[in-house]
């Protein structure tokens, strides 16, 4: 790995290549009719097939947040419904989007990077180009669009299941009744919160799918190169999810 000024230029060069790739991909949007079937396939793979793991994670996140909030609010001065007032916005504002994004970085991002990386090293991408197809449009646009469309759907599912998990655990554990939880959640409900969560999940969807496509598309070498791209895609996506999370919170809240 180069060090010094050349090494410092690498992230800038990568950003430039990433921007050019996205520019090229979105420049082929007019050919969407060719990619339509691929788009639906990706929506199923990225969205529908991710629902079980997202729901499972969200249910546990909601449940654990509820238990820990109940554990901290021991004073009789606080109404029990406050637990709902804390858990629901936590799920809507942060956990629903961020936990889903981290899960999907592993499930969706790694799959995309490995899939495109393997296609690169086995010349399947060259084959697409050689037969006259725009490989960037064909491979990247359906994946990125599917991510942007399906991540908000997954986010909404995660929030509903997470709050549901919280309600069930709170009720079964005897901390508070479902009606109290819901009352608390409604009391401090801000209609902008779910909008903010949807915006976040949309951005995260773009971040994960576009970075994974970029890493996979430019894979070099054989099996080792595919492994490297997959790891880099997961690490880079996580870093940019955190950065985007902070940036959106600072600018929109």
């Amino acid at each position: 790995m180069p060090v010094g000024p050349a090494g410092m230029l690498n992230p800038v060069r990568a950003l430039g290549r990433y921007s050019l790739l996205m520019f090229q991909a979105f420049g082929s949007l007019h050919e969407l009719s060719i990619y339509r079937k691929n788009l639906f396939d990706q929506m199923v793979k990225i969205g529908i097939e991710s629902i079980p793991i997202v729901a499972l994670t969200a249910a546990f996140s909601g449940a654990v947040t509820t238990v820990q909030t109940a554990y901290q609010l021991t004073s009789p001065l606080y109404p029990k419904s406050l637990i709902g007032s804390i858990v629901a916005p936590s799920m809507i504002l942060e956990l629903g989007a961020v936990v889903t994004a981290f899960i999907l970085t592993g499930r969706v991002g790694a799959r995309i990077a490995a899939e495109l990386g393997t296609m690169r090293v086995t010349e399947q991408i060259d084959a697409l180009e050689a037969m006259g197809l725009n490989s960037v449009g064909y491979l990247i646009i359906p994946r990125v669009l599917a991510g942007v469309i399906m991540f908000p759907v997954l986010y909404i599912s995660a929030v509903l299941v997470g709050i549901g998990g919280g309600i069930i655990v709170a009720d079964l554990g005897g901390w508070l009744e479902a009606a109290e939880f819901i009352d608390g959640a409604r009391e401090f409900f801000n209609p902008f919160d779910p909008v903010f969560g949807c915006i976040k999940s949309l951005v995260f969807g773009f971040v994960i799918t576009s970075i994974s496509c970029f890493k996979g598309y430019y894979t070099r070498g054989g099996a080792e190169g595919v492994g490297r791209s997959t790891t880099e895609s997961a690490v880079t996506s996580c870093v940019f999810i955190l950065l985007a999370d902070l940036l959106l919170a600072v600018t929109l809240l």
Binding site: M119, T122, E123, D126, A127, A130, M131
Partner: peptide, 9 residues
Amino acid sequence: VLFQGSALF
């Protein structure tokens, strides 16, 4: 084009 590794999808 027939690629070296066939490059079948």
